[in-house]
Design a protein around this nucleic acid. Structure first.
Lengths: 216, 216
DNA sequence: TGTACATCAGTGAACGCGCGTTCACTGATGTAC
DNA sequence: TGTACATCAGTGAACGCGCGTTCACTGATGTAC
């Protein structure tokens, strides 16, 4: 029997499984009442073990939260990646994937793009992952340009030589940033419930804003 | 001595003053660590009185929070009103006033336009105040139209008879909503620190988005 | 195959903390005659 | 002006709660000979 056959022992498998369930329960708590509600003791109780037992799997509440945050970023990056790999790397598909991802778990969205969690330092690789995601959007903008659409986000094109080039409405960078901030504007207000009672259909508004970003 | 001369007794004045100081300390706590950090006991300690003493002024933590939320909404509405009353009722002035108000106290901004505070029911008149604010923006859009600018937010005008009229890029309602969601998109990401390390200047980006909303 | 040992999941009790809130009470301020 | 009473700000102790975290321990699982 060679050693390469089974790199994961039963114990390791079990360990991974329990860790995964802890995270699942953690997400349920966050989904229902935000980051504040994340409680190791409650998770333990739900899983039928003592609070102290969780410390075999996560060294602290902060460590668990950090891993959840990282997973959230990764999940979003993966979502974009999947859209790109699926051959539909256009802005429209990306925007719809983003909205679906956000609606699937609003609190997860806010963990990524919402106000910073008080008293919590986000992981060091956060910025790089965020840049990564923005790069993918920018890639889609470039692709759109190559396919013939190279017009500005909207409004007049900047006079050359004036101002920063990333503020030129026609540049791919500017379009990517607008894609991000505008959709986030609609999405975050929708998820926060701020359209309620204002006779605004979030889905239609989202598509309308998207229309102005991804013409052609 | 007539009774109309002094409608506020010394006691009433003192009472109002202490209530105001409690709120000030409360805002300081929220500003530094979010809504979660709002603690009656800590406020009491800072003010040099016992925790129980605060209950002379606010019946519960929730009551205090509710009053803070209401004040936040009112403050924003007043800010817009002041701009309008000052004769500068154009979209540009409003947008700048909004940004200044937000930067002055980011947590206050999130109390109004951020994710809902878990476990807290916002006051019933919230929606009406929010509609009020949006109405003021819409008023500025109408005024802009009257002054000659009646073009769409950007992109092609809708074909008449097709779709909802509030989604017609040229309608005042649509422009007001875009004003709101787009500026919120930039602002909330800025306040959350999501532009950090991404080579994006929030002030310039804000103005750039504004340019596309308030041409003419 | 059987025994001796090491590893590790999980327990239960305890610690210290801060929270919101209640309650009986004291003492100062204002009011009525 | 002085006295009797009512109002009300503020105290200090206590309640119950849930939290994160530590620690000595038990018992099951895996490993080496």
């Amino acid at each position: 029997m060679t050693e390469t056959a089974a790199t994961t022992t039963p114990r390791e498998r079990y360990r991974r499984q329990v860790r995964a369930e802890i995270k699942e329960r953690a997400w349920e708590q966050i989904a229902s009442a935000g980051t504040t509600a994340l409680s190791l003791n409650k998770i333990a109780k739900i899983m039928g073990l003592s609070g102290a037992g969780l410390y075999r799997y996560f060294t602290s509440r902060d460590a668990l939260l950090t891993e959840l945050v990282r997973d959230a970023y990764q999940s979003l990056a993966d979502t974009f990646r999947a859209v790109a790999d699926g051959g539909e790397s256009d802005l429209r598909s990306m925007a719809r994937a983003l909205r679906a991802w956000a609606l699937a778990d609003p609190q997860r969205y806010f963990l990524v793009y919402g106000p910073p969690v008080p008293g919590y330092r986000s992981p060091a690789d956060r910025t790089s992952t965020m840049s990564d995601i923005l790069s993918q959007i920018r890639g889609a903008c470039d692709a759109a340009a190559r396919k013939g659409y190279s017009g500005p986000v909207c409004g007049p094109a900047a006079e050359p030589g004036e101002g920063r080039e990333d503020l030129d409405p026609g540049s791919a960078q500017r379009r990517a940033v607008a894609f991000w901030t505008r959709l986030h504007g609609v999405l975050s207000l929708e998820l926060s419930g701020h359209f309620a009672g204002m006779d605004i259909d979030p889905a239609l508004l989202y598509e309308a804003e998207l229309d102005l970003l991804a013409i052609g």
